[in-house]
């Protein structure tokens, strides 16, 4: 299915969706964070989309916004899209968890929570999976400073 066809179908799933194919090999869909869960579950269940395989979930710090990028693939229909979601609040960023749609999100959301500090609603057990529980700050954010351990040129 071509990117245009995908765009036509996905447009109907929510409101205020932005589409772009600029500077990327995939069709990018930017989703408002309130609609993330509903759109994702439709992406998976829609008979013409069937995005059942989330092959990459990336945390992202577009200063000032934080966000998550979902690379999705349909194992049956062989098409791929990228879903992006942004959250402006740096102090207490919160998104909906999609672990009930793609179970792989469970671990990837833990990783994102650990390094970007994005909290996920309804996540079964949000914890610091890599760092120690008392670690301060979120290392992969652009404004993270650790003078002792980081070598910045």
């Amino acid at each position: 299915m071509t990117n245009e066809d995908l765009q036509n179908i996905i447009t109907g799933l929510g409101t205020d969706l932005e589409f772009t194919t600029e500077a990327s090999e995939f069709l990018n869909v930017i989703v408002p964070k309130e609609q993330l869960h509903s759109i994702c579950s439709q992406l998976k269940s829609h008979p013409e989309l069937k995005f059942d395989y989330a092959f990459c979930i990336t945390g992202m710090d577009w200063v000032p916004a934080l966000g998550v990028i979902y690379h999705l693939n349909s194992t049956e229909l062989k098409h791929e899209i990228v879903v992006k979601v942004m959250v402006e609040d740096r102090e207490n960023p919160t998104l909906d968890s999609v672990h009930d749609i793609w179970q792989t999100a469970d671990f990837h959301e833990l990783e994102i929570f650990d390094f970007f500090g994005i909290k996920f609603n309804n996540h079964p057990k949000l914890r610091r999976i890599f760092l120690t529980p008392e670690w301060e700050g979120f290392p992969l954010r652009k404004d993270y400073v650790d003078e002792a351990n980081m070598i910045i040129k």
Binding site: T58, G59, M60, D61, I69, H71, Q103, F107, H108, E111
Partner: peptide, 24 residues
């Protein structure tokens, strides 16, 4: 996954490692 802003350094690099997903 490489996100570039056109500099000599990448803006963000993500490695989707097979082990992490398999472990889940």
């Amino acid at each position: 996954y490489i996100n570039s802003t056109g500099n000599k350094n990448p803006y963000r690099v993500k490695f989707r490692s097979p082990g992490f997903s398999n472990l889940s």
